[in-house]
Simulated assay, not measured.
Amino acid sequence: MALTSDASGVYPIAPTPFLDDGRIDTAAIDRLTDFYLGCGATGITVLGQLGEAPKLEHAESVDVARRMIQRASRLPVIVGVSAPGFAAMRALTRDVMDAGAAGVMIAPPNTLRTDDQIVSYYRQAAQAIGEDVPFVLQDYPLTFSVQMTPGVIRSIVQDNPSCVMLKHEDWPGLEKISTLRAWEREGAMRHIAILTGNNGLFLDYEMERGADGANTGYAFPDMLVDLVRLSRAGQREEAHDLFDAHLPLLRYEQQPGIGLTVRKYLLYRRGLLGSPTLRQPFAPLTAATKAEVEHLLGRLARHDTRAQL
């Protein structure tokens, strides 16, 4: 089930579940996967930026990916393979593709400074993992400190036929989506899928600008599924009403530093994780933060019963 440029819908970013002692919680991986299958996800991404991939050993990464791929056999699974060097990237890519992954996601290292360096890096990365392996280009300057202009993205896409999706997480980035889609209409760039991240903070208007869906890890991916469906059906106001109800919690969960801790707590409260813990090092939520999250859940529950936990 190879990833293609026709990908669309919602590809939730799966967290890596851990037990309280730091071991991987395989039962929670199964629960999460079943939930994604049941809520209308069209794909899954594992070992993404917030999947705590750097805290896993190679064998653990392969085991986590393989378990989710096997459990979600009817959905394409993308695996994050970003690494400081191409040897580690190649090894993980080979193992997860052998396990049945649909493609891989590659983020830029923060050492890249110029447009030429960025374009060259992705050309070399595609060659390193194998030019037959579909890959997702992750554009997330807030975290990686690498600024990709629309022209750089076009160059990467045109240079590498195996680049089939852009994970768009620039901020602000609505004009970037419009520019890329305009180039496609003009024939100046081949079509690729554009799925957006940033916890869905701008998904309402990103869909209207031409995005194909979401590739992010908000603790209510079932809401993202509904939002994408409403937007594609032309039910604009209904889509915005749903988005507006979730926006305070989306915003809170997106905070740098504690965002993943909040997300895991919410997934734990939804019964999808057996423990909200992260693998060390991490900072646990304070009592004040938990109280604020509970307050936000209560307010959201007035508009969306899925928050009545």
Rank of each mutant, 00 (worst) to 15 (best):
L3H: 11
V10Y: 12
Y11K: 09
P15V: 12
P17T: 04
F18R: 12
D25Q: 09
T26H: 15
A28R: 12
F35I: 02
C39N: 08
L50K: 13
E52V: 00
L56P: 03
H58E: 06
E60R: 04
S61Y: 05
V64G: 07
R67C: 02
A72D: 12
V77N: 13
A83E: 12
G85E: 13
M89F: 13
L92T: 05
G100N: 14
I106G: 13
P108N: 09
T114D: 06
Y122C: 03
R123A: 09
A125S: 10
Q127A: 15
T143D: 15
S145G: 06
V146N: 03
M148A: 07
P150Q: 07
G151A: 10
Q158E: 15
K167T: 00
K167C: 02
L174T: 03
K176D: 05
S178H: 08
A188I: 05
M189Y: 13
G200P: 03
L203R: 12
D204G: 10
M207V: 01
R209V: 00
R209L: 02
D212Y: 06
G217Q: 06
M223A: 05
L230P: 07
D241M: 04
K264D: 01
R270N: 01
G271V: 02
S275G: 02
L278W: 01
T286A: 02
K290Y: 03
K290H: 04
A291D: 08
E292K: 07
E294W: 02
E294R: 10
D304H: 12
A307W: 09
